[in-house]
């Protein structure tokens, strides 16, 4: 039943909205993972981001895809919590620690160990439309503990125009997606974050997009 609902949601509703109303323009599609475990990291400007990333992955691995999402936001009410857990399949994460010994990434590590594909937005929040903000270091800590898992950076442009934070009206814009090469872990967190930042900016520059203001 849940599988049918997920199929209806993703294949009928989400695909129609994303492929017809928006339209995707994917560069370097071959760099996307075909199986788990893997971590996809992307810039975050819109609720559509997760939907788009889930649409461009092969349908047969959809059951393995877990968008990592803020617990405080998605568990606000029971209906949203049910939808986020069962239909989208989010992996809830606490944005604030309760005690210094908490490991907010424990769930992520466990999911990777069982071969799942995580979608992470290291900016932490959707922020201002079509602007990159700083990346949080959680992804480096994940890479450190599981260095064999490929981490694939993805830059998306256009979704922040189509449905930015705080807006309910969807305006059609074509979304450009740039898939990067997997990042390698060389044993240093700072170097890793610099590398991630540089890769994202390079992917963004491939598009020559004017700033949106």
């Amino acid at each position: 039943m849940i599988r049918l609902l997920r199929w209806l949601y993703f294949k009928v509703f989400v695909q129609t909205v994303i492929l017809f109303i928006l339209g995707l323009n994917i560069r370097h599609r071959d760099r996307l993972p075909q199986q788990g475990p893997a971590i996809l990291i992307a810039n975050h400007n819109s609720h559509l981001d997760t939907m788009v990333l889930m649409t461009i992955l092969p349908w047969r691995i959809l059951d393995k895809v877990r968008p990592v999402a803020a617990m405080d936001y998605f568990f606000r009410n029971r209906l949203l919590a049910w939808f986020a857990t069962n239909i989208i399949g989010i992996l809830p994460i606490a944005r604030k620690r309760n005690s210094p010994n908490d490991d907010p990434l424990a769930g992520c590590r466990q999911a990777l160990t069982s071969g799942e594909i995580l979608i992470l937005f290291p900016e932490g929040s959707r922020g201002e439309p079509e602007q990159l903000s700083g990346f949080k270091t959680g992804v480096a800590r994940l890479a450190e503990s599981q260095p064999h898992v490929p981490v694939i950076p993805i830059y998306m442009h256009g979704l922040g125009k189509a449905l930015p934070r705080g807006e309910a009206l969807l305006v059609p814009f074509i979304c450009d997606i740039f898939v990067g090469d997997p990042l390698a872990w060389h044993g240093d967190k700072d170097a890793y974050m610099k590398e991630l930042d540089k890769t994202m900016r390079q992917l963004a520059e491939e598009g020559h997009f004017p700033t949106w203001q």
Binding site: G158, P172, W212
Partner: peptide, 11 residues
């Protein structure tokens, strides 16, 4: 849609 995605627009 292609045109509006291509040209510079204002927020």
């Amino acid at each position: 849609k292609e045109y509006l995605s291509l040209i510079p627009t204002r927020r």
